[in-house]
Write a protein that binds this DNA or RNA. Sequence first.
DNA 1: ATTTATACCTTGTATCACAAAGTACTAAAA
DNA 2: TTTTAGTACTTTGTGATACAAGGTATAAAT
Lengths: 111, 111
Amino acid sequence: MNEFNTDNIKAQMRKGVLEYCILSILNKNDAYASSLISELKEAKMIVVEGTLYPLLTRQKNQELLTYRWEESPQGPPRKYYAITDKGRALLEEMDTAWQDVVETLALIRNK
Amino acid sequence: MNEFNTDNIKAQMRKGVLEYCILSILNKNDAYASSLISELKEAKMIVVEGTLYPLLTRQKNQELLTYRWEESPQGPPRKYYAITDKGRALLEEMDTAWQDVVETLALIRNK
DNA sequence: ATTTATACCTTGTATCACAAAGTACTAAAA
DNA sequence: TTTTAGTACTTTGTGATACAAGGTATAAAT
């Protein structure tokens, strides 16, 4: 066991980039919530349902995403989300914003 | 004026890295709150007093920082903060945590 | 004595993410 | 055919972080 709660440190650092992650993933393929969670978990960007669902709803209300229902081969129907043009425009802005933050941090850390 | 509130996007992305910034800066030189704010403002990592003061108190209570009072050449005395060994240890962990987040984001964005 | 500048501190609010519990649909097992 | 297991979506309550705005206090200049 670590002296510091490294998990919590990372959790804090991840804050605010989740929206960026969601738009990034959906920019490549449409997906439904459970598959997004799996994908993020694989990338060590762990998210739980209670976080993701409200976030998707927010982005849908902002017209960054749309969704459609699709039958599942097994189980209840799935809500597939797709990125919109507006979402793609925001994604590009987020690229710049993220690069800025990364560069600023590098400056502060090394100067 | 932009369609999106880019400032707010960055503000969200900055969340959770402020502690990292403070420890980084204090690792180089002791400083007092107002000078930290100036330094962060220069780096475009804008912080306001109401954010910084509670944060410094938290870090002091966690024994990541100590402080001492020093007379000012002009104005009221200043509370100079200095990083502790424990703070330096955490800073190293934060380096790793931050690199992880940056790499993960790069993966998600490019894959 | 009042104003100006500097510096520290507190309170209330908004947002983000998590934890935990709940709803609902489908298919397979009892 | 009822029950159970699995999948998927949703909501409520809580904690943490940062901001906005206002407050306190010291010291020098007018």
